[in-house]
Write a protein that binds this DNA or RNA. Structure first.
Lengths: 206, 206
DNA sequence: TGATATAATTAACAGCGTTAACCACATTAG
DNA sequence: CTAATGTGGTTAACGCTGTTAATTATATCA
């Protein structure tokens, strides 16, 4: 009597196929070329079919973004497994990973944090409990907590540090992506400089 | 024989009227509601007319953005006139002004730096010589140069500091705008914390 | 007054997100 | 085994969008 289960699986499978197709379209041609109709053509279904799997385009994009954030989460998880357990060094690596991953998938990163898909869906689904974006930020938050363990910082201070640092690396990533014509300093040096600047904020108060 | 001149003026006037209408529509309903047709209706012309004044929507939006940046430039200029000439204090005020202005016009700021209108127009027109965005960044750059006058920083170091600081305040502004549901620390405190963190980078090396 | 240049319009194209109505099929109940 | 039910998918359409070719109206000049 596994009929129902098989059907469930098939449905779940097509759902994933749609997301995958959307991602690969995003990677190739960017958000402006990602339309429901083109996506439908790509997966060889009619456009309406997609609406049986996702409420609307915003819902689909949300799922695409979740997948994208899972790449960040995955890479962060690998950092946590490193033998070098110096928290400051791990945070450094984490910050670099964030920026480099963003620059590796510029078209996707744009959709992740530049587009405000929050506006359409009345529920605020970005950075919510259980989402990948929340997990990604949690890594940052915890890394920072580890770094200041000996500096009697309040929870609020830790939160502010996380938020400042997140904002800074997000800002750098997004500007490097959206302003390719700007006369940037050498990218590697600039990224290091930004990370150095942010790490200083975590030093023990004197 | 001032006929030609009058016509020029009239043309220029309608051009400005279109930009103004676009801005007010942007302020009220955000970018997704700013369509060429609605804009045309608003100014009581046919949609095609707009295309006699702007090459396409991207061109129009660029001009809208230029106007928006001019608000930043104007406010920065006022800071330069302050009697308090401590460069570090002036930079602090400038950074606060940037963030507060962005938060004051969230819908406009989204279009200014979140949308990458660069993609469509083959020329990279954002942050180009002579643009308002370039002037706004120049203020930052110069303020920072003033702050580190006694710290024998190289031009590249000054540039990297400007870029890091710009990225950080842009990142904070844009995340505060696009992620309203995130459990932010108290905004004022957070902004101060971010600015403090960035100012530390400009201290003399020991 | 008639010719010319210019400003603005109408109508259309191709594409978009979305939905109501419908069809075909697999599953279940009688 | 047939009939009813439900599920997954499609067709066709609505009302938008940016953009452009062809056309008209208007104002200036000779």
């Amino acid at each position: 009597m596994g009929i129902k289960e098989r059907k469930e699986r098939q449905k779940e499978q097509l759902r994933k196929e749609i997301i995958q197709a959307a991602i690969s379209m995003l990677l190739k041609d960017g958000y402006e070329k990602l339309s429901m109709r083109r996506l439908a053509e790509r997966i060889e279904y009619s456009p309406t079919t997609i609406y049986h799997y996702f409420r609307d385009k915003a819902d689909l994009v949300f799922n695409v973004i979740e997948f994208a954030f899972s790449i960040f989460v995955e890479r962060f998880a690998k950092i946590n497994l490193l033998e070098d357990k110096d928290p400051r060094e791990m945070l450094r690596i984490g910050l670099r990973t964030y920026i480099e991953t963003a620059l590796e998938y510029p078209k996707v990163y744009k959709v992740m944090l530049l587009i405000d898909y929050n506006m359409k869906t009345e529920v605020c689904q970005g950075l919510q409990k259980g989402t990948m974006s929340e997990k990604a930020f949690a890594f940052l938050h915890n890394s920072i907590r580890e770094c200041v363990k000996e500096n009697d910082f309040s929870e609020e201070e830790i939160a502010m540090n996380s938020q400042t640092i997140w904002a800074a690396i997000h800002g750098l990533s997004s500007l490097l992506i959206t302003q390719p014509c700007f006369p940037w300093a050498p990218k590697d040096k600039l990224i290091d400089h930004t990370i150095d600047t942010l790490m200083k904020a975590l030093e023990k108060r004197r």
